[in-house]
Amino acid sequence: MPWLKVGVFLLALLPFIKLILGFYQDDLGANPIEKITHTTGFWTLSFLLITLTATPLRLITHWSWPIRLRRMLGLFAFFYACLHFLTYLILDQFFDAAAIIEDISKRPYITLGFTAFVLLTPLAISSNDTITRKIGSKNWRRLHSLIYPIAIVGVIHFAWLVKKDLSTPLMFAGLLSTLLLIRLFYRR
């Protein structure tokens, strides 16, 4: 079903394309850097959760196609995480090493975001077929179970950074718990 993959690929690129267009049309609001940070962070977390939907969906429906999309979806989470981190590094802090080190070491929400990003990187690298074969499926599965703590840490990162309105982070927390509970339910 290559058309499915192509379609999902293009859909997953939409937030990125919208950002690029918004940038060129000067349509990102009064504070474009904040807008880019928030959009890329939002889609990183969203793609982590969408990736985590594949297994529950298969468990419930016995369809196999969600699993075949899983790798691409996970790589999109990493793609948006890279954009998110680069936005922080370049647009927000402009390579101010002292400020970045202080942020990562002193500000828990940045510490958590950074941790999630660091943990996500080996998952992205090992998604390639050669490496997957080399490390073996057991190790691969062990490594990729990191996606659960990564998603949890991502939600906490979000909840910790909002000034007061917790509604969106709580929505993500609710969705993530539901996905994890479905797995637990089927594992019994």
């Binding site: 009064a30 400020a99 942020d103």
Partner: peptide, 11 residues
């Protein structure tokens, strides 16, 4: 939760 040392002037 965050630094107040610097600010971004809108624009």
């Amino acid at each position: 939760r965050w630094s107040q040392a610097k600010e971004r002037r809108i624009g």
